[in-house]
Design a protein around this nucleic acid. Structure first.
Lengths: 340, 340
DNA sequence: AATTAGTGCGCACACGTTTGCGCAACGAAT
DNA sequence: ATTCGTTGCGCAAACGTGTGCGCACTAATT
């Protein structure tokens, strides 16, 4: 203990270290590094040289303390059973890297965001948080509101007051219904999910409304729990029906469920699209696999994430902006599963 | 500007705020909150009460600056095309939540960890970093070494000096080979990956070594690029062979490739396991789907992550511990794809 | 020669928390 | 009545950056 001042193993080089080497004040180093115009080019070059030489890396945490901006964004993901969230994570990571900010995983899975989880947002002073899937307990959203943490819900319209960026679920549902109707499908089932999310409901409502234009109603409504296994079970149920009364079209409100439906049909010998057409929603990369060849609506994920970051950055500058809900049109991808 | 002292919108309550309300020094508040025995129970209760009343949440960043520990762990993930990384993420997130620490996404994808990316580890003063999949540029690993950032490679043995936690790939490869041999399979193909990772090579080596005991050699070696699509292509190649010379067994060194192989066989009408047996490696949840019913080795992911955190925490206390490489036995799961 | 208008930089404090040290007050033991 | 140990707490510095203000110096204008 007595010798600790001697043993200190080459501490990290900081702005203070550099200021001593350069014989200037720490504030000069800060400004030189940030390109402040008040510092002469000569001094700046010298300091930049020293910074490189001694391998200086700024301490983002200290900067946060001083400036208030952390460069950290929270990310809340849904369960691992839906690859959509994996796509979202990768897209968000890539964009964060490009923006020079970092993502903090706040939560991943099914359950709601608890108070304890929400506090992490404050503890690490995040500049904002992207929430997909999960809902917040009212206490958790109170905490965020009270502390001015900008939030944006992705693929979900908030129950609470909050910004949201979603795919246009109604337009997508309508397009898929129109497609099935145009192919002459008349007995149509839906595999939906009964979670608290708005997404499934919107897709179903618009789908059913479009069917109604041909005086059709949904022949069957099954719950697929937003999982492959749930879709598979639903598919087995449909496949087990007598061919005469079996639907000739299925809309699974998410691709992962559609994949389960398709595999169940395949195992049961129900032919797609001859016996029954199948359409999904999300545009997962795996929906393009030849084995599925699934007709679906592709969510514009890159743009959705981009807009999310824009909203967060804008709101962290001025917290009092009105909330905005953004709906982006998806792209219909017609593949073999819906029939020729 | 003149009025800004008036307009300050109820700043977040800090330790200083609390100390004023309680009429004590900030240091007393700190100690009371942390349960220091030197503070009287009465004072502590009073301060805890105020903390609740005013919704105090500690500022983790300021704490880091002062104490050196951030409670942040970096996480580097592989590409979204392999669900294994999704499982890893969710397991790591769940355990981090239980440990009261947070995960910072450092990188997700194929490319190596660049210098710029590695710097994020320093900027946010992470207590350690879990690296799966990616390799680091030598410059990046120099940076981490120089700044004493504890690293642990998961599912990968480091080229550079570093700790690692992996599944016992050799034992797994051997077990799978023994299984196929015991089922009488004699012409065996492997779908591997030529990346720089040690994992594929270890699995293949042990697999081939076991085959050699029956004087068998690998009939075919294909590159599946660790993706479904790569596995699918490999499967098509195999399926296109004349039945007489076609292999009667395939080892795909990762489940995601095995799934591609299986689907290619299905589309080509090659029957599994009658015409050809298929085995994988990783134990992905999706390998259990009835449509795949894939025999595989399940990696003990929960334990792997637990040990990883233990290693990181231990090394952040004492950086000079020798490096350790931990190999955990996987579990053979025999399913239908390898034959009865 | 006196005023002005820059240019280049330093001083000092702030951000919120932790921590080593030390100081009062109090009861107990000499 | 002095010394001692204990309990309970405060002081002040430190962590690394950012920033408002102001000072010195030079050069251009009256």
């Amino acid at each position: 203990m007595e010798e600790e001042t001697e043993l200190k193993p080459t501490r990290r080089t900081t702005i203070v270290t550099l200021s001593q080497k350069a014989g200037v004040a720490p504030s000069t180093v800060t400004r030189a590094l940030r390109g402040d115009s008040r510092i002469s080019t000569k001094t700046r070059e010298r300091i930049l040289g020293l910074a490189r030489e001694f391998g200086y890396t700024p301490n983002a945490l200290a900067r946060t303390l001083s400036s208030g901006r952390s460069g950290l964004y929270g990310l809340v993901l849904g369960p691992s059973t839906n690859p959509f969230y994996t796509e979202l994570l990768h897209e968000a990571t890539a964009q964060a890297e490009a923006l020079g900010v970092r993502l903090l995983i706040i939560h991943a899975g099914l359950g709601p965001i608890e108070e304890r989880t929400a506090e992490a947002l404050l503890q690490y002073q995040v500049d904002g948080c992207i929430i997909s899937s999960a809902i917040m307990t009212s206490r958790a959203s109170e905490i965020c509101a009270a502390n001015q943490v900008p939030l944006v819900m992705v693929n979900r319209v908030a129950m609470q007051r909050a910004c949201a960026v979603t795919c246009d679920n109604r337009a997508g549902g309508r397009e898929l219904a129109e497609l099935l109707r145009s192919k002459g499908r008349r007995r149509i089932a839906i595999v939906r999910t009964s979670s608290t999310s708005s997404t499934s409901q919107e897709r179903e409502d618009a789908f059913a409304a479009s069917l109604a234009k041909d005086d059709l109603t949904l022949a069957l409504r099954l719950d697929g729990h937003s999982t492959y296994d749930g879709g598979f079970e639903a598919g087995r149920t449909i496949a087990a029906m007598a061919p005469a009364e079996r639907p000739d079209g299925v809309f699974a409100v998410s691709d992962i469920m559609a994949m389960g439906v398709l595999d169940a049909f395949r195992l049961a010998g129900v032919r797609v699209p001859d016996d029954i057409a199948v359409v999904g929603f999300d545009g997962l990369p795996s929906s393009a696999r030849p084995i599925y060849d699934l007709t679906t609506i592709e969510q514009p994920l890159p743009l959705m994430i981009r807009r999310s970051f824009e909203i967060l950055q804008s709101r962290s500058k001025d917290q009092n902006q009105p909330e905005e809900v953004l709906s982006l049109r998806g792209r219909l991808i017609v593949r073999g599963s819906s029939g020729a």
